[in-house]
């Protein structure tokens, strides 16, 4: 074997280590920039309709069911939230902005009490066109919700196209939601 080939052979483990290090560095940098969260899971609901459910509303208002999501006139968001959830308060302002842009947002309160909810909506604003309450949390399990807040994007044919676990930020809206709105509206 020529000395050049020998040197190349010694370079193989080194190159592997460099590639691995580069990968870890990229992951950490994206985590730091809040661009990547290794705990988020892909949703099996993507490309499907939401599961069968029918939830009551709050304070005598009507709730909604999966049949109300079959053919929305515009692409819409379904936002799972709770009055006891801090990231939900963080994203409240962003939800208000989205509602003002004319995007229909329907809310499902996760394991919450009507009185707490009323106080929460009074304090943080109410961006929701429709509100339902999943007090037992069993509908959330059928949706594959594993924490609040979670936001689902539903297109005009009632198909879920995107799920975001965590508070919606300016960056998430610019990176994920705006392109979806452009594509499906």
């Amino acid at each position: 074997m020529s000395p050049l080939r020998r040197r190349l052979l010694f370079g193989v483990p080194l190159a592997l280590a460099v590639a691995g290090g580069e990968g870890f560095y990229l992951i950490l940098r994206r985590m730091q920039a809040n661009d990547y969260d290794p705990h988020t899971l892909p949703s099996p609901l993507i490309g499907k309709r939401p599961p069968v459910f029918s939830l009551p509303g709050i304070h005598g208002q009507p709730g909604f069911a999966n049949t109300d999501l079959l053919a929305p006139p515009k692409p819409m968001l379904v936002n799972w939230f709770a009055s006891w959830c801090l990231p939900c308060q963080e994203e409240a302002a962003m939800l208000d902005q989205l509602a003002k842009r004319g995007i229909p947002i329907w809310g499902i309160a996760y394991e919450d009490k009507p009185a707490d909810l009323a106080a929460y909506l009074k304090a943080n604003g109410n961006p929701y066109q429709c509100l339902a309450s999943d007090e037992s949390g069993l509908t959330a399990i059928n949706w594959g919700v594993y924490g609040v807040p979670e936001t689902y994007f539903i297109d005009k044919t009632g198909i879920v196209r995107w799920r975001y676990a965590g508070a919606l930020t300016k960056e998430v809206v610019a990176r994920d939601l705006n392109p979806l709105l452009a594509k499906y509206s």
Partner: peptide, 8 residues
């Protein structure tokens, strides 16, 4: 479970 949460 897999139907709801995926293979993860």
């Amino acid at each position: 479970m897999v139907q709801r949460y995926g293979i993860f």
